[in-house]
Computed example of a mutant assay.
Amino acid sequence: MHKPNEIRMLALGLIRDGERIFLSQGYDPHKQETFYRAMGGGIDFGETSLTALQREFQEEIQAELTNIHYLGCIESIFTYNCLPGHEIIQLYQCDFVDPKFYQLEKIVFAEGKRQKTALWVDISRFKSGELKLVPEQFLGFL
């Protein structure tokens, strides 16, 4: 999680399979709201965003990435569980090396002490407003 008054640097991977996208599911207890975000994580000091992206996918779901292309930078200022947050996101489009990841319905993994779920979601569910994708600028890349 982020420290107060700190801008977090993230590397996230956009993985598409036809009309579905691979995302991590989150929940804001204060807003009582489920949301979805591309997988990835924090960039460590001295590490490139590309290296961070590959490391995070390896650590979280033991997945290797291929066909990695830089899409752009997103700045996100938000509130999560009553706390202000500020993130600079380096966004990459990529694919899984192992085809098994395209067959899985969902993957449960640990992020620190928290248990998280990653799953395939139909893009139309975000475009219709049924589900919430964060940050919202992410929709522009779909």
Rank of each mutant, 00 (worst) to 15 (best):
G72E: 04
M9L: 09
R37S: 10
F126E: 03
L53C: 01
F57C: 05
Y36R: 09
E130D: 11
G112A: 09
I88N: 03
K132P: 02
F138H: 00
E105D: 14
Q137S: 07
R8M: 12
H86P: 00
C94G: 06
I7K: 12
E136L: 10
G85H: 10
F96E: 05
Q103C: 14
L23A: 03
E111T: 11
T51A: 11
G18N: 15
L53V: 03
K106D: 06
I89W: 07
I68H: 03
V134L: 13
G18K: 15
T34L: 10
F109K: 07
L71W: 03
I68W: 01
Q25N: 01
E105L: 08
E130P: 01
P29F: 12
F109V: 11
C82W: 08
R55L: 03
T117H: 01
C94F: 07
D28R: 12
F101L: 11
Y102G: 14
H2I: 12
M39Q: 03
Q103A: 15
A63H: 03
G41I: 05
H30L: 08
T34C: 02
Y36I: 11
E111S: 13
W120Y: 07
R20F: 13
E47H: 07
L65W: 05
F57D: 04
W120Q: 06
T79Y: 09
F35V: 09
D98H: 13
A52G: 01
I43Y: 01
F22H: 14
P29C: 08
Y36F: 15
F141I: 06
G18C: 13
Y80A: 06
F126G: 08
K31L: 13
E111Q: 12
Q54I: 11
F101M: 14
G46V: 08
I74P: 00
G140D: 09
I21H: 03
Q93V: 02
A110N: 11
Q25C: 10
L14E: 04
M39Y: 01
K132F: 10
H69Q: 09
L10D: 01
Q93H: 07
G26H: 13
Q103H: 15
F141K: 04
K31P: 00
G85T: 11
N81V: 04
L50W: 06
K31D: 08
E33R: 13
C94K: 02
P29I: 12
Q58N: 12
C82F: 09
D17Y: 15
